[in-house]
Design a protein around this nucleic acid. Structure first.
Lengths: 118, 118
DNA sequence: TAAATAACTAAACAAAAGGTTAGCGCTAAC
DNA sequence: GTTAGCGCTAACCTTTTGTTTAGTTATTTA
């Protein structure tokens, strides 16, 4: 019945753990949204805050620090006065493309389903 | 540079929103872990709690209610005394297979990378 | 000259999420 | 007859996460 979602038993045992490991770095309310926003192209702080609707400056600031630490994002300082900073995804972030693509696909499908139900 | 992660501009605009929609139902600390656990096969409450390490009964109970509401899980009551309940994924949950598979793949890769770095 | 924009950050607080403990009714094993 | 397991749930508390407000330094735009 759930063939598509099942693997062999050995893979099964490790899959829950692998999901843990993934969610540890990209879980949470904002991480993937920020990455998705940056996948449209490099962005500056306020630009990013406008794209990721609902995020506060403080939280965005923290999320960016976290994403930088984990090697998903780099800060590029363009000028010093006034400070102009751009955030861009690293090569490593692009390893997430499959995850993002499948999530976007699913989200789109799910939204349509919910709309039809009403 | 980030070719793999980029789409055309129209898709881009909707992608952040689609991710929002997806995370709205499957975001959070436990949802995907519970679904992953159940993808190994149907499970009972305590069995599930043992598989999803770290989750408390209270939280598992809440997550299951939520997952049921959103049509990912069904409760099957086998006997009434003692109560024996099994949780199983619905057909709709299997639409998440791409998301889960890509997440497991990425998580495995990421774990290996982190291990090598130390 | 005033206002807006940029890129934040500190402080104070509120909300959400999660943990802990205890307990219920019931059964099966020791 | 006590202990352990099952499937929860309520009450209470802590931790995490997020919000709001205000403020900094500096430039561009009207």
């Amino acid at each position: 019945m759930n063939d598509k979602i099942k693997y062999n038993s050995k893979e099964c045992i490790s899959s829950v753990g692998a999901i843990d490991d993934a969610l540890y770095v990209i879980g949470g309310k904002w991480k993937l949204r920020v990455i998705a926003a940056l996948s449209e192209g490099d962005k500056r702080f306020n630009e990013l805050q406008r794209t990721v609707t609902g995020i506060s400056a403080r939280v965005l600031s923290n999320e960016l620090k976290d994403l930088e630490l984990n090697g998903f994002v780099v800060r590029i300082i363009h000028t010093k006065s006034p400070v102009i900073v751009e955030y861009k995804l690293t090569e490593y972030a692009s390893t997430l493309s499959d995850v993002l693509i499948s999530l976007v696909k699913w989200g789109t499908m799910h939204r349509d389903k919910i709309r039809k139900e009403r």
